[in-house]
Design a protein around this nucleic acid. Structure first.
Lengths: 251, 251
DNA sequence: ACCTGAACACCGTTCAAGT
DNA sequence: ACCTGAACACCGTTCAAGT
């Protein structure tokens, strides 16, 4: 098996520990267990995200989904920013980790593939991650720790390992952002005004000004995204390998 | 000189051609020359962007800046989406192009540097580009044409050239997005709750769970962004060079 | 043809007030 | 402690009406 499962998030479980004694001796007018908690909010936000996408993920819609007023959310969460950070971390929770005994190159490629898989699993995940602040949730910390460890084990020095970690992270994020962005959203309009369409795109461009663009049109219209992703990972890995070799030859 | 200046945008000039005869024989109650046009809107939007940033760039603020009602904008522009696309292209207008006689590697590096320079020149430029649709404005077409031409001239086949073009574009975009994002926005609060601060960041992490993260803390807090950018470009170029050599050796 | 007034259907966030 | 009502200060966009 290529991957090892990371420890499962507390959110993934049913959080039964809080429900062992649902009604205590307290005055039962108000339930001792509050209706809302951060876990419930995050879980509801995730399913809402899958249903309506990033633009539909609003505090008000989330309140509606939970059957409460949007204002109530602010008791458990500082604001939408914090919610997005929590979501970012939760989205990365199912991230599996490659076998440590594999060569560093394969580990790195596996990490890239897994990261992409996890981001594609949830709707608009890349936008959520991009919209949230720096990543200090436990799952993302675990992830970057493993990336950096892999690079250090491979023989990179501190500086190169840190930068390479950024690079891999940035590449996957950007790639998924790009492939997720709906360029195909203007097909509903029957109007022939679909300018940015890839269909007539080629016919509009002048072969005098844009010969290369036209020559490469087949590949610019994204016939095989997976292939393009693999290409990028390979370039990165090759580049890093060069770096590693010249470094070691130098000393 | 390393760069050649691209043809200047019509927006950069004063658009005097429209003002030669400001008052025609028409009934002068309403000016024959309309108060608004797309060029004026885009130019005003750019200066507004520099003043208030991406979040402040709203249709209503833009209308205020132009001394008109926001609704009037929709006569000249389909919506905010189109405005962002126009801005994207205009932001890329000052992009200079490297000398074609240089080796492809240096041309590529120069293109990366120039692209970053242009994006850093305007406030929140990366967010504008990311927020807008696929890039089919004249300036961005010119830019990608040159990138692809450089790669084709270097000897890459169509597929690799196309993918490598994506890769370079994505890298620079993502890098600038990252370095532009204000992680330093929480300093105003005197509260010791600044969790995502890089200051106490190191003290909070357990050395048992995150040894690599702690070991690389110096470089993760971005001491030298320029250096990190150069690192990434170098890795990409090295990776592409490997690709090119193995391809040519294979046939 | 070009611009305005006025509205529609939303946002995130705050805060006194309830229980 | 936890949730609601009601407001504040915004958004993008539409569209009949003015000139």
């Amino acid at each position: 098996m290529l991957y090892c499962q990371g420890e499962s998030s507390p959110l993934s479980g049913d959080n039964e520990s809080m429900k062992i004694h649902p009604r205590k001796v307290y005055s039962p007018k108000r339930p001792a267990v509050p209706a809302l908690d951060q876990g419930k909010i995050v879980r509801a936000a995730l399913t809402l995200l899958d249903e309506v996408g990033f633009d539909g993920l609003t505090m008000r819609n989330l309140g509606k989904k939970l059957g409460i007023k949007a204002a109530s959310l602010y008791w458990h969460v500082h604001g939408k920013g914090e919610l997005l950070s929590l979501l970012s971390d939760e989205i990365c929770a199912p991230m599996r980790v490659p076998d440590r005994t594999l060569p560093w190159r394969e580990q790195l490629e596996a990490l890239g593939n897994e990261y992409r898989r996890v981001l594609l699993a949830r709707r608009d995940a890349a936008r959520v991650l991009a919209g949230s602040r720096a990543s200090f949730g436990p799952h993302r910390l675990r992830l970057t720790e493993i990336v950096l460890r892999t690079l250090l084990d491979a023989g990179f020095d501190n500086r190169d390992a840190a930068y390479a970690g950024f690079l891999l992270n940035d590449y996957v994020m950007m790639f998924v952002s790009g492939e997720t962005q709906d360029v195909n959203a203007e097909i509903e309009d029957g109007a022939d005004e679909s300018f940015s369409n890839v269909q007539n795109w080629v016919e509009v461009l002048s072969p005098h000004d844009h010969p290369s663009l036209l020559a490469l049109a087949d590949y610019l219209s994204e016939p095989d995204v997976d292939e393009r992703f693999r290409f990028g990972v390979e370039i990165l890995a090759d580049g890093l390998e060069v770096r590693l070799k010249t470094r070691n030859a130098g000393r």
